[in-house]
């Protein structure tokens, strides 16, 4: 019985991490849908979200809802600028050039922000806007941090659902990701939709950044690399380009990572995630929920 409780507890912890991964993975999967690009800089937008939140909370001591709105806004702005400055001139370039540019943007953001004049490369303690309280039930204990993460993730996903399935922009975005040329012939402004996708993805990453900062209160300029890559793996696992797949993939990856840390050793968690990636790419390259796409 104790084992089962322990496992359940780890599942809850995994869902906490997985919720953050899901929020980041959505940005990857949407951008891949419209642009067929692995946006390596997405992990750094996530990092930026955590840093913006850090400054808003510690320097201006803003209320938490304002922190969320301003962080989302600034991340969206950064996402929009990245797309306009770095990716748009390369729209017709070979795929690899675009990928290298994405790597370049990612490195630029990391090392520019790690300058001593800006954020410094050191770890910074993230100020939690509230104290941690654990609610003990008979089986498990859930902290208020976890509750907040689940609620905010749920709200974000609900808003995203409305945005994608109920608005004109969402329909246009799905059309572009389905077939760019035809969508453009039907009168969809491709450039606008691509910018829109980047803005939505970046603001979700910003929310993810705040939640990550609250859950694991130590932030660093390079913290976006591994969560970024893992979220991309989550997006591949769920089927790249599929919105609900990204959420499912994120939760699965989060649970796997926590399980590996809990039952094996925390040094192996990155390795196991990449073994999952290999397995997915080799045996089911379209992912769990994906349509058949050409990548093999």
């Amino acid at each position: 019985m104790e084992h089962i409780i322990y496992i359940l507890q780890q599942v809850v912890n995994g869902l906490q991490l997985g919720a953050v991964y899901a929020l980041i993975a959505l940005g990857y999967t949407m951008v891949y849908g419209v642009l067929r690009l692995i946006n390596f800089a997405h992990g750094d937008v996530f990092m930026l979200g955590a840093f913006v939140a850090y400054f808003l909370i510690s320097k201006f001591s803003m209320p938490i809802y304002l922190v969320f709105i301003l962080t989302m806004f600034s991340c969206a702005l950064v996402g929009y600028l990245i797309e306009k400055i770095a990716y748009k001139p390369l729209r017709d370039a070979p795929k690899i050039s675009l990928l290298i540019t994405a790597v370049g943007v990612s490195l630029f953001l990391e090392y520019f922000l790690s300058l001593n004049a800006i954020f410094t490369p050191n770890y910074i303690a993230f100020p939690r806007p509230f104290d941690v309280k654990a609610y003990d039930f008979t089986f498990l204990s859930i902290t208020n941090v976890q509750v907040i993460i689940f609620i905010i993730t749920f709200i974000s996903l609900f808003i995203l659902y409305l945005l994608i399935y109920k608005t004109k922009y969402g329909i246009a975005m799905r059309a572009v990701s389905h077939d760019k040329e035809t969508a453009s012939l039907m009168g969809v402004g491709i450039d606008g939709i691509i910018s829109f996708t980047f803005i939505v993805g970046a603001s979700l990453a910003g929310v993810g950044g705040i939640l990550y900062g609250i859950a694991y209160p130590q932030i660093n300029v390079f913290m976006g690399i591994m969560p970024g890559i893992k979220s991309f793996i989550a997006a591949v696992l769920g089927g790249i380009g599929v919105i609900h797949g990204a959420v499912a993939g994120g939760l699965i990856i989060g649970i796997c990572e926590v399980f590996v840390s809990a039952f094996l050793s925390s040094t192996f968690r990155d390795g196991v995630i990449f073994i999952i990636l290999f397995a997915v790419l080799l045996f089911r390259p379209r992912g769990l929920f994906g349509k058949r796409i050409e990548k093999v």
Binding site: I38, I96, L99, I229, I233, V236, F278, P285, K295, V296
Partner: peptide
Amino acid sequence: KLKDDFLAIATLG
């Protein structure tokens, strides 16, 4: 067997 960006992410892995 993989192409372009998926090969990139696999080699990165």
